[in-house]
């Protein structure tokens, strides 16, 4: 199959099935691995015949601790990874990523505002995801307004704006947390670095719904994302209603990022690493890249979280530290290559 051959439904199905198998494998690994390693056969028995073995400590570990966390990790990873693809298509820049651009930071700030001051207004934890969504969409709109103008944003202005947004968001988060007394304990630290250590079932369901809604809106637009890569005017001349597609992308990414950040904090670089890796493996065609990124992002974050839980004997790392350690260098490598191609500024 040469790079020149067109995407067929068969090839699409094949790639997605392979990624699905990888997802099953990483999910199984996540259930087996941890401070207490469980034999694969026992994990399988617990999963299949849950009731027979419930009450046993191993069953509690699998069903109450590892499985919820595995599900949350997969859904957050998928959301962040697809958001990365969409931001890259929207801004026509492979360096775009919700974390790098400060959109995740905006979402976190929205969430923290509700956590810190929402109680006084009668807002409960349920108000955190909508606030995070508002934070991410406000930041994304601000990003267009500040770094925008017509056509393709230069990488320099995009990244500088993102850096500043991130600095402002982190400062504001710490500020809000100090004012409201949230800084006691480690919760604020976990928000800032990103962690999957406190999954709530309702939250997982919400993020899953947002992810599915986002994918349902965006996947049918996938070919239009390819056309957008030719430039907004060329896409328009090929029949794309550019403004409509941009609105859909913006809404979908803000929903997914807001939901993901509201449950896991600032997990960075997933949206950069996975789309880049998949473009190398399966090509840039968005009809394949969008669903493949969802599966790939899920696999990646599940594996990272498994590492976070097992690397440190007797303790755990925030998963955001692991994704940042993996993604930071890759980002620098991509930036370096863009400079080499004279694509900057």
């Amino acid at each position: 199959m040469s790079a020149a051959s067109p995407l067929s439904p068969g090839r699409l199905a094949l790639v997605l099935l392979l990624l699905l198998a990888l997802l099953l494998f990483s999910g199984t690994l996540a259930l087996i691995a941890g401070p207490a390693w469980l034999p694969p056969r026992e994990v399988l028995r617990i999963l299949l015949g849950g009731s027979a073995s419930s009450g046993a400590p191993a069953a509690d570990i699998v069903l109450r601790i590892r499985l919820p966390r595995l599900l949350l990790g997969g859904i957050v990873g998928a959301s962040l990874s697809v958001s990365g693809v969409l931001f890259q298509a929207l801004l026509r820049n492979p360096l775009a990523d919700p974390f790098v651009l400060g959109v995740s930071g905006g979402a976190a700030l929205g969430g923290i505002l509700v956590l810190g001051f929402g109680g006084a207004l009668g807002l409960g934890y349920a108000a955190v995801p909508p606030a995070a969504f508002l934070g991410s969409i406000a930041t994304a709109l601000l990003l267009f307004a500040v770094a925008g103008g017509r056509g393709r944003l230069s990488s320099t202005s995009l990244l500088l704006t993102g850096v500043v947004f991130n600095a402002i968001a982190s400062a504001a988060i710490v500020f809000v947390a100090s004012l409201s007394g949230l800084s006691e304990g480690t919760s604020i630290f976990l928000w800032l670095i990103g962690s999957l250590s406190a999954p709530r079932e309702s939250a997982t369901l919400l993020v899953a719904l947002f992810l599915l809604a986002g994918l349902a809106f965006v996947w049918p637009q996938a070919r239009r994302l390819d056309l957008l890569a030719l430039g907004e005017e060329s896409a328009a001349q090929l029949g794309v209603d550019v403004e409509r597609v941009k609105r859909i992308l913006l809404a979908a990414t803000s929903l997914m990022v807001g939901a993901a950040v509201s449950v896991s904090g600032l997990i960075g670089f997933v949206g950069l690493i996975i789309p880049h890796l998949l473009r190398l493996l399966v090509g840039p065609d968005h009809r394949l890249l969008v669903p493949a990124s969802a599966l790939g992002g899920a696999v990646f974050l599940i594996l990272c979280d498994t590492a976070a839980r097992t690397l440190l004997a007797g303790g755990e790392l925030p998963v955001g530290a692991i994704t940042a350690l993996a993604g930071g260098p890759l980002f620098l490598f991509l930036l370096r290559r863009q400079v080499g191609r004279n694509l900057l500024p």
Binding site: A4, P94, R152, D226, L227, A229, R279, L343
Partner: peptide, 15 residues
């Protein structure tokens, strides 16, 4: 036109 992603030339034509 400046394309930001590594599409094969044939894919650009098919677009």
């Amino acid at each position: 036109s400046e394309v930001p992603f590594p599409y094969p030339a044939a894919e650009i034509v098919r677009m």
